[in-house]
């Protein structure tokens, strides 16, 4: 019974959202507001249940504040973050923010250099005349990078190089747009499939 109610609810809400295609209407508004309200409440409970409770509270119960994971530190940093709510003491939240930014920057710096920059440069060091793909890849990378070199006017050779670069960039945008259309259509297929199959049993 619960499944049937769930399917009907999902189907009616799907139709209410789709009704926006005809024009703004109360059904769409109701579905939209319901979505926003449920999401907000859900995320609050979610962060408590899946992040704070299992990683901090359960940990404190098991090993105390000064155990293996030194949970006193995240507890204090977490409390300091809440000081943002009180304008007079809001500056206390800068400590956990600084910790988060520092950690993020450190991870991003090593990760991006080791995992993105070097391997991608290495993958571009190819024999340009070994295959047409190699030639196009090298040409595309160099001309696209030079398109973003703004310290010199785009005249003469520089103008031609930048022009070739913009063609490569446009092809990349075209591919991205094509894939985006495909993704959106896939989502529509999923929803229509749900309506025809689970709800109406026509498939």
């Amino acid at each position: 019974m619960a499944t049937v109610i769930g399917i009907w609810l999902a189907a009616l809400l799907t139709l209410a959202i789709f009704s926006f295609l005809y024009g703004d209407n109360p059904f769409y508004k109701a579905a939209e507001h319901l979505y926003v309200g449920v999401s907000a409440a859900f995320w609050l409970l979610y962060i408590w249940s899946f992040t704070v409770a299992p990683n901090l509270l359960v940990g404190i119960q098991k090993q105390g504040l000064l155990g293996k994971d030194l949970l006193l530190i995240p507890l204090v940093l977490g409390i300091l973050m809440l000081f943002r709510i009180v304008p007079k003491y809001a500056w206390y939240s800068r400590y956990p923010m600084a910790f988060a930014v520092g950690l993020g920057a450190g991870l991003a710096l090593t990760g991006t250099t080791q995992g993105l920059l070097f391997p991608q440069i290495q993958a571009t060091i190819l024999h340009p005349f070994h295959s047409i793909n190699n030639f196009l890849l090298i040409l595309g990378v160099i001309t696209s990078l030079l398109y973003f070199y703004f310290s010199r006017e785009r005249e003469g050779v520089m103008g031609w190089v930048a022009r070739i670069g913009i063609y490569f960039i446009m092809i990349a945008f075209g591919a991205t747009f094509g894939y985006t259309v495909m993704a959106r259509v896939s989502l529509l297929i999923g929803r229509v499939g749900f309506l025809l199959s689970d709800w109406l049993h026509l498939m």
Binding site: G111, T112, Q114, G115, L116, P119, T176, Y179, T180, M182, A183, S186
Partner: peptide, 20 residues
């Protein structure tokens, strides 16, 4: 996963992503 598991530890990685 690429930046840390693959680049740092040499893990073999496959990804399945959305079309976008």
């Amino acid at each position: 996963w690429i930046q840390f598991a693959q680049a740092r530890y040499g893990a073999k990685l496959i990804t399945g992503v959305t079309a976008v």
